[in-house]
């Protein structure tokens, strides 16, 4: 039987791994190569790595680092950040990375998702969608690391990305990022019932129970950052992986 995935999501800030709260308040986590090696040794189901500056600051992707990381990683790895053309996707995949995650550029240009899926296959193309919910309860999608507002509901963007050929969606709540307040089950439920491709939940993971809860609700995978990087109230740095999808299913 298929096994639902539990995925550490790691953020690259230049050459450091960091963790954010609501896409701000960066905390240094560690060296990316070492950290990924530790997660690899813990036999995690998959790792997602986002470069948080690539789109915002229009930086070049650090391929030397990606090559080094991929060389230490024998579990599935997905990279996102600053991808705007087909050649870059080819280069990322060539480094030994299975999948790419598209975000800002793809949301503004759905035909790019279509071209990418035609060339590399849908299963290679993940689209991540970040969103906020305002005080009056309205949802809006944001791109460029939460800095640019798109006046669309996440479900609407999710459907457009599915139609364009995305193979999977990562739905991330900016409000819950790094807050340990639990996943946004209500919105995730809406997305899951609106598309026929797998959905990864992200933002707000609190504990093992919250992972179970969101996986039971119907997402195909649960991603988390802080949960796997910190321990306790004072956010002491401790790389941990409380359970793999194997245990979840058991």
């Amino acid at each position: 039987m298929p096994i639902k995935r539990i995925i550490p999501l790691l953020l690259l800030d230049n050459e450091d791994l960091i963790k954010t709260i609501k896409f701000a308040q960066k905390t240094y986590v560690g060296d990316p190569v070492n950290t990924i090696k530790i997660f690899n040794d813990k036999e995690v189901d998959e790792i997602i790595l986002f470069d948080i500056n690539a789109s915002r600051q229009k930086l070049k992707i650090n391929f030397n680092l990606l090559n080094e990381i991929a060389g230490e990683c024998f579990v599935p790895l997905c990279y996102g950040g600053g991808i705007k053309d087909i050649d870059t996707i080819a280069e990322v995949l060539n480094a030994g990375i299975e999948r790419v995650s598209l975000n800002s550029f793809a949301i503004q240009n759905p035909t790019f998702v279509e071209h990418a899926a035609n060339k590399f296959g849908s299963s290679t193309i993940l689209v991540s969608i970040d969103y906020k919910k305002d005080v009056s309860g309205h949802y809006a999608v944001f791109t460029h690391g939460g800095t640019k507002k798109i006046k669309s509901h996440p479900v609407e963007i999710a459907k457009i990305m599915e139609d364009a050929g995305a193979g999977e969606l990562l739905i991330q709540s900016i409000d819950r990022d790094g807050t340990f307040t639990g996943y946004d089950l209500e919105l995730l439920c809406q997305v899951v019932s609106s598309v026929k491709i797998p959905v990864i939940a992200c933002g707000g993971a609190k504990d093992v129970n919250s992972l179970r809860e969101v996986l039971t609700m119907g997402v195909s995978a649960a991603a988390a950052g802080g949960l796997f990087l910190f321990k306790g109230k004072h956010r002491a740095k401790l790389i941990n992986y409380p359970l793999s999808g194997f245990n979840y299913n058991a």
């Binding site: 039987m1 298929p2 096994i3 639902k4 995935r5 189901d45 998959e46 849908s122 299963s123 193979g167 999977e168 026929k196 491709i197 797998p198 119907g218 195909s220 995978a221 999808g245 194997f246």
Partner: peptide
Amino acid sequence: QDMRIPNIGWND
């Protein structure tokens, strides 16, 4: 019930 394509993940 709820078949999603692609199939992504671990299996035996």
